[in-house]
Design a binder for these strands. Structure first.
Lengths: 110, 110
DNA sequence: AAGACATATTCTCGTCAAGGAATATATTGT
DNA sequence: ACAATATATTCCTTGACGAGAATATGTCTT
């Protein structure tokens, strides 16, 4: 899991853009209009998102339709999946770890 | 979905910390040691992660054991879930949208 | 209580990123 | 080709962030 993807999503305006594109692809102007962000900033944010592989462009007439790409989200999902196995283990492992945490010469009768 | 969580994870060192804690809780010093990051920076990063609700602390003796919290990850997962339904629809919806995208007076015989 | 150990905090500096405004660069439709 | 429209880019300023170094704040242990 690279931090680049998460960093791209970790900016309020960009997250809004992604949430908008979640519903349907949109051209730059309409994204700007719907979110109340000026067009240049939208272009910049889309640039970041594109470099991070989060979105892709499809030119249609004189506009550029931006849409989400599935890969980065699948990657995040896979990453999260590698956690899931551990949550149950974690619940008691925490106490286990707390107890066994390098208290070699110590006896717990405190 | 708030960008705060993603922003917290969108930093290389912090992501490494999270990946380490994925395996097991650890005290600050050991995190620093294992990742080769100086203790003060680790403390700072842990502070950010804690404020974002990604980790929590458990004082044990004179150290502070940091461990992951499940909630933020579940939140991300839920967010991703709201996408999944759309991926299949998206595949053809893209073309659909591209075609029907405000080309009212246009006929596609180009 | 003192000393040792673990962690947090402060300060400074350099860098990077974001917003605003203006402008450049297409690309289209007539 | 021209005017219009859509998007990208540049320049600037400002604020936030991260690393480094030094130091402060705890908190056991004896």
């Amino acid at each position: 899991m690279h931090s680049t993807t998460l960093a791209a999503l970790g900016e309020p305006s960009r997250l809004k853009i992604v949430d908008l594109l979640r519903g349907s692809p949109f051209p730059v102007g309409e994204i700007a209009e719907r979110l109340g962000i000026r067009q240049p900033q939208v272009s910049k944010h889309l640039g970041v998102l594109r470099e991070a592989g989060v979105v892709d462009v499809e030119p249609v007439a004189r506009r550029r339709i931006y849409h989400l790409r599935a890969e980065p989200f699948e990657e995040i999902r896979d990453w999260l999946d590698s956690f899931e196995e551990l949550w149950q283990t974690r619940l008691d492992s925490l106490e286990t770890v707390l107890a066994s945490m390098e208290n070699p010469t110590q006896d717990d009768t405190r």
